[in-house]
């Protein structure tokens, strides 16, 4: 009797320690971001004296000022436009490609599979230098086109394999039935596979959007004109130029990550499953 009671006590003690540790890690992940959000409502003076804390007086001027000075309307537009084009291109090319890789038989299929598999791990620095100088010759550097083309290309391999794995799980009989009814392969894809794979297309669309929104290296290298800069690079310029006003920097941070955070809160399962897939198959 006493033995089970002791065990019970120990069990609850360990459970409590476990919970405390997990909550501490929770705070470690979340508090830096929550504080940034809170700081966007505090005055610059207050933030500088004490970066952690709640607002004494609510400063509501940070948001409109930062949005205006940082040129965020234009930056949002640039990022959204780029993301829209890249999403359409990637979904089209990956949809068709993954359909061929998972449903059709043809010579060289293994080559294409292996190609996209290896392509995932090609280091960026192996091709950014030649890409820059070739695009410079073509007059594409410092245009939105350059980023649209590059993001579309670099997003292909991962999403191709992601979608292929998903499509492989759909029974081939469904398309065969459509084919007997006289559908071409393209019609099969559009009428049978696409409706079933819609959730995966949505996941890929979200992943591509987040990538385009967050991407820094290419955008920072290729775009020098202020009015063409997407959000993430615009933000870095802003922190450099207006570094003396800390409250505005915190506000700009929130403005920059808000769309991604909101998307994440709405689709967290899709984010996590999409971003961590590939690890199981290695």
């Amino acid at each position: 009797m006493t033995k089970t009671m002791n065990k019970g006590f120990l069990y609850y003690l360990l459970a409590a320690i476990r919970m405390i540790f997990l909550v501490l890690m929770l705070l470690f992940a979340a508090v830096p971001l929550l504080q940034v959000f809170i700081n966007s409502f505090r005055s610059d003076r207050e933030v500088k004296i004490m970066p952690i804390g709640l607002p004494k007086d609510w400063a509501l001027n940070n948001w409109p000022e930062t949005w205006e000075i940082g040129g965020y309307a234009q930056a949002y537009l640039n990022s959204l436009l780029t993301a829209a084009v890249v999403i359409v291109v990637v979904l089209t090319l990956v949809g068709l490609g993954a359909y061929a890789l998972s449903k059709l038989e043809f010579k060289g299929k293994n080559f294409f599979m292996a190609y996209f598999f290896v392509a995932i791990s090609l280091p960026t620095f192996l091709y950014i230098v030649p890409d820059y100088f070739v695009m410079n010759k073509l007059g594409l550097v410092d245009t939105r086109w350059s980023l649209m083309i590059i993001y579309s290309a670099t997003q292909l391999p991962f999403n191709m394999l992601l979608l292929r794995t998903f499509l492989s799980g759909i029974p081939r009989e469904l398309e065969e039935a459509a084919k007997i009814d006289g559908c071409s392969e393209l019609q099969c894809f559009l009428r049978v596979t696409l409706p079933i794979a819609k959730p995966m297309f949505l996941t890929i669309g979200i992943l591509v959007f987040v990538h385009v929104w967050n991407e820094f290296l290419w955008a920072n290298t290729f775009i020098t004109t202020e009015s063409l800069k997407p959000v993430a690079t615009k933000y870095v310029v802003f922190t450099g130029q207006y570094g003396s006003n800390m409250a505005r920097i915190y506000t700009a941070s929130v403005i920059t990550i808000a769309p991604v955070i909101l998307l994440y809160l709405a689709f967290s399962r899709r984010f996590i499953e999409g971003m961590t897939s590939g690890s199981v198959k290695g």
């Binding site: 979340a30 967050n214 993430a232 690079t233 933000y235 870095v236 990550i257 991604v260 971003m275």
Partner: peptide, 14 residues
């Protein structure tokens, strides 16, 4: 997972 989804530019500058 939240810190993983935000931009490196913002996380770095924060």
């Amino acid at each position: 997972f939240v810190p993983y989804v935000i931009s490196a530019a913002v996380a770095g500058k924060i």
